[in-house]
Amino acid sequence: MKDTQKPIVNTTYTVEKFDDEILLYTEAGTQAVYLNDTAHTVWLLCKEDMTVGQMVQYLEQQYPEQQKLIRGDVTGALETLLENGVIGFTDED
């Protein structure tokens, strides 16, 4: 996954909100995806027209005390979202 890539959100997913977590499910009802707090945050940023690098940079500024963990958490969450078809990627190169 490159920093220049930009996630594109699959709009066929509907959101069910819980306190710190969410459940995404397809309109066709064929798939549901559970997102924890971190993945939820990343999914929200995916809708903000940001590249992977911009997301990491933004979260590092927001949570400087967790700077070492953020890149791994972001790429892990994005991979989960990609595997479940919640997002795709475009390349900004």
Partner: peptide, 18 residues
């Protein structure tokens, strides 16, 4: 387990969702 996780698991047993 949390309600979100519980809902995810419960959907797997929801047999007339369609």
């Amino acid at each position: 387990i949390s309600p979100a996780r519980s809902s995810l698991y419960l959907l797997q047993s929801h047999v007339n969702a369609r």
